[in-house]
């Protein structure tokens, strides 16, 4: 379903959830949880947004049932470690490509996804200083390399 305009800020997290639903349903679950929680803060009053958030909540409830045997979903502390590891894996892959001078769309996406997953970590509480720095760096790198490739320049 189309995302209502007031909830546009969660569209990338929802797209990540969709993309990872088969590969890693736990990450997809927490991306959606982040989207609902953030969406409720953005707008849970207009009928359009309420309807959208209710549907997302339906999906989350059924995902939680399906994943009930998975400790990463039944215990949020384990879930936190799972998301943090996944974000770090994405970050390290992109960083390794960057340091090896291999600039491509996939590494840009990995940097950006790592930054989105660090956003998702906020559902568990305040971010560590290290995660704040990683998020800032990953988002900046993704934008910088994207612009370089678009303009036919070699990233430094």
């Amino acid at each position: 379903a189309a995302i209502p305009a007031p909830l546009k800020a969660i569209q990338h997290h929802l797209r990540t959830a969709q993309e990872l639903e088969k590969r890693d349903p736990v990450v997809a679950y927490y991306c959606k949880l982040y989207a609902v929680q953030t969406g409720m803060k953005l707008d849970s009053k207009s009928p359009e947004c309420r309807k959208f958030l209710m549907k997302l909540m339906d999906q989350l409830e059924s995902m939680k049932k399906e994943l009930s045997d998975n400790e990463s979903v039944s215990q949020e502390l384990v879930g936190h470690a799972h998301i943090e590891n996944y974000a770090l894996k994405m970050f390290l892959y992109a960083d390794n490509e960057d340091r090896s001078g291999r600039f491509h769309k996939n590494m840009i996406k990995s940097f950006y996804t790592a930054s989105l997953l660090i956003d998702v970590l906020t559902v568990f509480g305040e971010l560590s200083e290290e995660n704040i720095q990683h998020r800032k760096y990953a988002r900046w790198k993704a934008t910088y390399i994207h612009n370089c490739l678009k303009n036919g320049e070699t990233p430094q």
Partner: peptide, 27 residues
């Protein structure tokens, strides 16, 4: 009808908050 509408809206908002809390085992 305006107040009925806003009552419905806040009931639904509560429903969302309650479902979120249940989902996260916070109730």
């Amino acid at each position: 009808t305006g107040s009925v509408g806003s009552s419905v809206a806040s009931a639904e908002q509560d429903e969302l908050s309650q479902r979120l809390a249940r989902l996260r085992d916070q109730v």
